[in-house]
Design a protein around this nucleic acid. Structure first.
Length: 356
DNA sequence: AATACGGGGAT
DNA sequence: ATCCCAGTATT
């Protein structure tokens, strides 16, 4: 049968070309889970070190469930999509509470865990338990769209359903783990988004997209994200050896990460405009000595759907006002212990570079 | 069905 | 600049 042939070719290619990665050396569902969450929308090279450090500190479900969320976030610092870390922590506690600390073994139960969706449940169940569920990630969309010359958009629900059924029909149920790994690795290394080397592709004789000269046009995606600007005015307030920090609690970017007290404005503002604002006046109400040590206009911070224009004002005070009580007051030398965004991390590095 | 959610590497 | 990466949750 043709379908089996494709599977065999992919698996043969995989055995010869696969990368040696730590999560491929285990069948521990916990370790596979951690790797899958880290690798969501994240390149292998970027996630590798995070995986090693994370699993060394949290080697099993119990260790993760017992930790404070703040510490989990610290281990996630810089990786992005921080809901993954929050969900990971929540799911570990879910496993302790609902499954007696044993990682669940059925598709339905695994899917009930926070942060695990259609892709990740298939990955965990096939890699750890060899259950016959096809993984459908960005790589699989691309490989299948090209192989079968399908221009159905991969954004919508129809496309997702179609490609999932197609992947499932191709899956070798005797070795779903190998098939899924092979399909994704093939997409990551051979059937790459730009300028794939179709000349040396083991499937070039079967690739309908190649025959139709549409490989570069596939897969089809519809919408592109609109990037909206935001203006962040950070106040690095310190005195008496203490620094003010704030925890982002809103349903917004960087939730549960720390930062300096922030005044967000509708547009770029000068120091004069900022210091004239009511929120600013109230914050420094009653402080005798307020000294602006430095103004730092950081380069714009680009996220997938936001671009942030940050300005940092270093402000030295001789005392802290009443209204600053809503912030954390931490010793200067312990600021580094708090999980922060890349933006804050970058500023901290600049500040340290200017200290001497 | 759209949108929000990070950060970095490749082209 | 643009694309996109072993996606999920919310609206």
């Amino acid at each position: 049968m043709e379908d089996r042939e494709i599977s065999d070719i992919l698996i043969r290619w995989y055995e010869e070309n696969k990368r040696d990665l730590p999560w491929r050396r285990t069948s521990d569902p916990y370790l596979i889970w951690i790797s899958e969450i880290i690798l969501q929308q994240t390149r292998v090279v970027q996630g590798l070190e995070y995986f090693n450090r994370f699993t060394e500190r949290f080697p099993n479900v119990a260790a993760l469930a017992m930790a404070d969320e703040d510490e989990v976030m610290k281990y996630w610092q810089g990786l992005g999509y921080y809901s993954r870390a929050r969900n990971l922590h929540a799911a570990a506690r879910q496993i302790m509470n609902d499954f007696d600390g044993v990682f669940p073994r059925t598709r339905e139960e695994v899917l009930s865990l926070r942060g695990i969706g259609d892709y990740t449940v298939a990955a965990i169940c096939s890699f750890a338990y060899r259950l016959p569920y096809a993984t459908v990630d960005g790589n699989v969309f691309r490989v299948l769209a090209r192989l079968f010359d399908i221009d159905l958009s991969i954004d919508g629900g129809e496309g997702k359903k179609y490609f999932t059924a197609l992947a499932q029909s191709l899956l070798d149920e005797r070795r779903p783990d190998l098939f899924n790994q092979a399909m994704m690795e093939f997409g990551a290394l051979q059937c790459v988004p730009k300028s794939p080397d179709c000349e040396c592709c083991p499937l070039n004789g079967k690739c309908l997209g190649l025959a139709a000269r549409r490989v570069e046009r596939l897969p089809v995606k519809s919408g592109k994200t609109v990037v909206k600007p935001r203006y962040f005015n950070y106040l690095y307030i310190h005195g008496q050896g203490m620094t003010l920090l704030s925890k982002r609690m809103e349903n917004d970017i960087w939730r549960n990460l720390y930062e300096f007290p922030l005044i967000e404005t509708e547009c770029a503002v000068t120091w004069g405009e900022l210091s004239g604002m009511a929120v600013f006046q109230e914050l420094f109400d009653g402080i005798e000595k307020v000294e602006i040590t430095r103004e730092y206009v950081a380069k714009k911070h680009v996220l997938s759907h936001r671009v942030i224009y940050p300005v940092f004002y270093e402000i030295r005070v001789d005392s802290f006002s009443e209204s600053m009580g809503k912030y954390l007051k931490v010793p200067d030398n312990r600021v580094g212990e708090y999980a922060v965004s890349r933006l804050i991390q970058s500023y901290l590095e600049v500040r340290d570079g200017l200290l001497f």
